[in-house]
């Protein structure tokens, strides 16, 4: 698997496609920094003691936050690195040659996936370092310890999120022989989970628990909506990063059942003080596990298809 991993990694960094991704990273960085400077100068954003984290979460005027940018365009990076992983080897006729070498078939998928995750991690980490660097330059001070912990947590969630899309695209490349078909199907799923599931969640919540003046109804409505929305990896990502990066204002957007799961005493404190970094990490742990489970389920399907398949040249 080592040989496959290193070759694929070299491929990723050598491709023109990768330059495109770096372009996206550059735009993302400038986006975050621009929005923050606007907020700092105009005082439009919700600035608080977590100024560094605000770079990721604050929007300005027409521009939504950097977080939104990542949750929306991040999947494209994962898809771009994976949609032709296996089927392009088929069309080039290299797959039968590679599988005639002493290589286990799962090593082909795993090597490609791990190389992709490495490339994604490099992209995300470099973007964050650039943002922190530029942020320090503009704001004139360094992030505090807690902010660093939160940013590291955010990095892990982001990598898990993009890795999910990479896994989805890689799986599609195993099932669909045509690279265009596999790109379209993955993009379709991306759009579906990004918009349609969230709309459906709304509709379903209103149907099963119509809103009234009753607070319990409202909570039920919100709960249904949240749980259906969690099918969407994008929603999981937003929920998790919100918790990590916006400890103060997120409480108003925080899913109610997350808040209700805390004890009443905690709830009382929560309204006044931010959640601690450790508490935030504990809250997002299920989200990370959910994304990793998603990867595992996808790969189970990919292995089942690929392991005993006939490989013709």
């Amino acid at each position: 698997m080592n040989a496959i991993y290193w070759k694929e990694l070299a491929d990723h960094f050598g491709r023109r496609r990768f330059l495109l991704l770096l372009g996206l990273v550059a735009i993302g960085t400038l986006w975050g920094v621009y929005v923050t400077t606007q907020a700092v100068q105009g005082g439009t954003g919700s600035l608080d003691q977590f100024l560094f984290l605000d770079i990721f979460t604050s929007g300005s005027g027409v521009l939504p936050s950097l977080l939104f940018f990542i949750s929306f365009f991040g999947p494209l990076i994962g898809i771009a690195l994976g949609f032709d992983a296996v089927n392009s080897e088929r069309t080039h006729g290299t797959l039968s040659r590679i599988l005639a070498q002493p290589v286990y078939r799962d090593a082909v998928i795993n090597g490609k996936f791990l190389a992709g995750v490495t490339a994604l991690a490099v992209v995300i980490v470099s973007m964050e370092l650039a943002i922190i660097g530029l942020g320090m330059f503009i704001l004139g001070f360094a992030p505090r310890g807690e902010e660093i912990v939160r940013i590291v947590g955010f990095t892990l969630v982001s990598i898990a999120y993009l890795a999910f899309w990479l896994a989805l695209a890689t799986t599609a490349s195993v099932f669909l022989r045509n690279t265009v078909a596999s790109a379209l199907v993955t993009l379709g799923i991306w759009l579906f989970s990004g918009f349609i599931i969230l709309l459906l969640a709304n509709v379903a919540a209103d149907y099963f628990a119509p809103l009234s003046s009753n607070a319990a109804d409202a909570a039920r409505n919100f709960s249904i909506q949240t749980w259906i929305s969690r099918v969407s990896p994008g929603f999981l990502f937003q929920e998790a990063t919100q918790t990590l990066l916006d400890p103060l204002t997120s409480r108003s957007q925080q899913p109610l059942d997350l808040i209700f799961s805390l004890s009443p005493e905690r709830l009382e404190g929560l309204l006044l003080t931010p959640i601690s970094a450790a508490e935030s990490l504990k809250l997002v742990w299920p989200h990370i596990v959910a994304l990793i489970t998603g990867v595992a389920i996808l790969f189970t399907g990919a292995y089942a298809k690929f392991m005993r398949e006939e490989i013709r040249s």
């Binding site: 080592n2 070759k7 050598g14 080039h92 006729g93 290299t94 797959l95 040659r97 590679i98 040249s313």
Partner: peptide, 25 residues
């Protein structure tokens, strides 16, 4: 095994393609 239609990575040189096979072996 030489397949009916043998495929190589078009972006890699002949030498690099063989180096990959060597690494796999």
């Amino acid at each position: 095994y030489l397949p009916e239609t043998v495929g190589f990575y078009p972006d890699l040189t002949g030498k690099q393609n063989l180096e990959y096979t060597a690494a796999l072996n």
